[in-house]
């Protein structure tokens, strides 16, 4: 494996020195392009109280292409599917090399605060979110309690 690009070094360094509140991202000991991420569920969202694990991988041509991010913890969210894949424009066609690991994780945190059932990835979840938001939120809370809480 080649030397880690300075861009990645710098981002890692800054993530360690000035962590984003509610988000932790640590590089894997064996692979500096692979990050273990934990995001706390935002306050006043159905995910409040939960701690969500994600994995983030920086592909070879990062930052020219977007990081690959996936939820490991199960989550009931219209824009996140069963496999943890995330529907977020900046991870796809709206990626820009001006964005960073930090901004990506912030966007994901924001997505938890503001689910967008009109641009769904998990169709059944999105459907329920549109027709019966109260029940969907109840499900999301239940999943948070079941899968994203330590005890």
């Amino acid at each position: 494996m080649s030397v880690l690009p300075r861009r990645i070094l710098k981002e890692t360094q800054r993530l360690m020195q000035e962590p984003v509140p509610g988000i932790s991202a640590k590089p894997d000991e064996g692979n500096a392009r692979y990050f273990h991420v934990k995001v706390t569920g935002p306050e006043d969202s159905p995910f409040e109280g939960g701690l969500f694990k994600l994995e983030l991988f920086l592909p070879e041509d990062y930052p020219m292409s977007a990081p690959k991010v996936r939820f490991i913890t199960k989550i009931y969210h219209p824009n996140i599917d069963r496999l943890g894949r995330i529907c977020l424009d900046i991870l796809k066609d709206k990626w820009s090399p001006a964005l960073q690991i930090r901004t990506v994780l912030l966007s994901i945190q924001a997505l938890l605060s503001a689910p967008n059932p009109d641009d769904p990835l998990a169709n059944d979840v999105a459907e329920l979110w549109k027709v019966n938001e109260i029940e969907a939120i109840r499900n999301a809370k239940e999943w948070t309690r079941m899968y994203a809480t330590e005890n």
Partner: peptide, 16 residues
């Protein structure tokens, strides 16, 4: 040192 001095004028994509 590169890291320290590169900040002000290095490329914001690669920092190289």
């Amino acid at each position: 040192l590169g890291k320290q001095t590169a900040d002000e004028d290095s490329c914001t994509i690669c920092f190289d």
